[in-house]
């Protein structure tokens, strides 16, 4: 089942890149995010899955669709034909190389990190083990907000 979800994720990502209509591209990107969130849920990463659905599939898609609506049809950009023609061959070669390369690592045993105590909660890890980098995360949020404000600032009389 996991492999089908990953194939769907890759398929929708390819469609998001190569569809000519930007709106359809944005929707394909959102669908790819939903498949990624499903993969997160299946791997036991429920919090990351919820964030992926709500923030990436929701908020970012809304931002993309808003920008596509604000930049109307006059903004259509003619793309070259050759990237679409070369892409299947390049992707097939890359996948073959990728599988061959990753086969070297499949024999390696994975070493579990003895970091977490049994039964430790997500909140303990997020707020307890990671303290100062969360301040950085809050700084990134403010940087994004003020960045958008700066670009849409109205001209003053000065």
């Amino acid at each position: 089942m996991n492999i089908y979800i990953l194939v769907a994720l890759i398929l929708f990502s390819v469609m998001a890149v190569f569809l000519r209509d930007l709106l359809k591209s944005a929707i394909c990107l959102a669908v790819a995010s939903i498949f990624l969130a499903v993969m997160f849920f299946r791997m036991g990463a429920t919090y990351a899955g919820v964030f992926e659905v709500s923030v990436v599939a929701g908020l970012i898609t809304v931002l993309f669709i808003t920008v596509i609506a604000l930049t109307n049809d006059d903004a259509k950009v003619p793309e070259n034909k050759w990237p679409i023609i070369i892409f299947p061959v390049a992707l097939a070669i890359f996948i073959i190389f990728d599988i061959w390369f990753m086969n070297k690592f499949i024999i390696l045993p994975s070493k579990a990190l003895p970091l977490l105590a049994q039964g430790e909660k997500f909140g303990d890890v997020l707020w307890g083990q990671r303290t100062f980098d969360l301040l950085g995360q809050i700084g990134v949020i403010f940087a994004g907000v003020f960045g958008v404000f700066a670009f849409f600032r109205r001209k003053t009389d000065e």
């Binding site: 964030f51 970012i60 970091l115």
Partner: peptide, 22 residues
């Protein structure tokens, strides 16, 4: 160590949103 990975992924998603918005 899925909990730590999730918290890092959430941080990464926040950075991604700020990047896309700007």
């Amino acid at each position: 160590n899925i909990m730590l990975a999730q918290s890092l992924a959430i941080t990464f998603i926040v950075v991604e949103v700020a990047l896309v918005a700007v």
